[in-house]
Simulated assay, not measured.
Amino acid sequence: MFRSRSIFIASSLIVMLAAGSAAPAQDNPEPQIIMVSGPLFDPFFSALKKGADDAAAHLGITYQYSTVQDVNNVQADMARVVDQAVAVEPDALVVGNFFPDAQNPMIERAAAQDIPVIIQDGGYASWQENGAVSYVGYNPEEVGLQAGAFHRENGVENALCVNHVPGNPTLEAACTAFLGVIEEADGKGRVLTIALQDAQNPQANLQAIRGALEADPTIDGIMTLGGTQATLAAQAAQEAGFARGEIIIGGSGLTTQVLENVRDGSVAFAIDLQPYLSGYYGLLLAYHKVVYDLLPAEPVIIGPRFVFADDAQAILDLNTQYTGIRGIN
């Protein structure tokens, strides 16, 4: 997703080869698979790539991981990266369709060329229409519904949804579903949009959230679409004079700090979208399609998994043993 968990932005193409640890079987020629997804400075995507790397190693193959970096002209540049991948005519593509308006034509062209496309994370609502053969990731509406239900159960009546990736319909769908739950229970809410250029600027995020709280001190619930933003929301609430737990705060994405915040009670929950599984299964589905012409009958949904206070320390401990699986930085 261009997630929240953060967005990648683009002007230059990065192609990374993830080498497997074993040679491919002699009777099973190695397919050419390209995965187009997010930037590795975002812990969500570093975990996703680790999953794909591990799948490649277990299968005994190599693959290409392609992404973009830079915060200028993201939608056009992301489309260009997909276009370049299609031009290679690989055996299969795994694509994070974070900006469908820009990326759909390239995905549809790949399908027309009989290149199997697996849509990953972004683009859940339209993957079948694009001619993709499968989807792996999460349903953003379900993320928003579950987060909204938790907030309502905890008495939230005025909610804020923080979207730091404007223009990404997956994240917009999560916010819409979240606020819809609040409003159906006679509450109210709005979206706080963080400018794309400020998505990786903690101070800009902090100031925006604190400003919203100071402008409307009746806000009693916050949902963020990134783990970093959840931590900053807790800090903003403290700086705006709210006591710990006075505002119900939850966020999508895991970082060390947000897990510590969940454990200590300043953040009520974190949502693990399990990007490692998205990377692993994305590559596995592509391989199985190319080599064996096998696919699951339904999309592969690997999130959301909600993390609460009694889960957080166990995940922190696990990450010291298996670094990067949960995308923690």
Rank of each mutant, 00 (worst) to 15 (best):
V191K: 04
V191L: 02
I194L: 13
L196F: 09
Q197K: 12
D198N: 05
Q200W: 13
Q203M: 11
Q203K: 08
Q203Y: 10
Q207C: 07
A208W: 04
I209A: 08
R210D: 02
L213Q: 06
L213G: 03
L213P: 05
E214V: 11
A215R: 02
A215D: 01
D216L: 01
P217I: 04
P217H: 00
I219E: 03
G221F: 04
I222G: 06
T224N: 01
G226T: 07
G226C: 09
G227V: 06
G227W: 06
Q229H: 03
A230T: 02
A230L: 04
A230V: 02
T231V: 01
T231G: 05
T231P: 03
L232C: 04
A234L: 03
Q235G: 00
A237S: 12
A237Y: 10
Q238G: 13
Q238Y: 04
Q238N: 14
E239R: 15
A240R: 03
G241V: 11
G241W: 14
F242R: 12
F242Q: 13
G245C: 14
I247G: 14
I248C: 14
I248R: 15
I249V: 15
G250L: 14
S252D: 06
L254G: 10
T256S: 12
L259Y: 14
L259P: 12
G265E: 11
G265D: 01
V267T: 10
V267P: 02
A268T: 06
A268G: 03
F269K: 01
I271G: 07
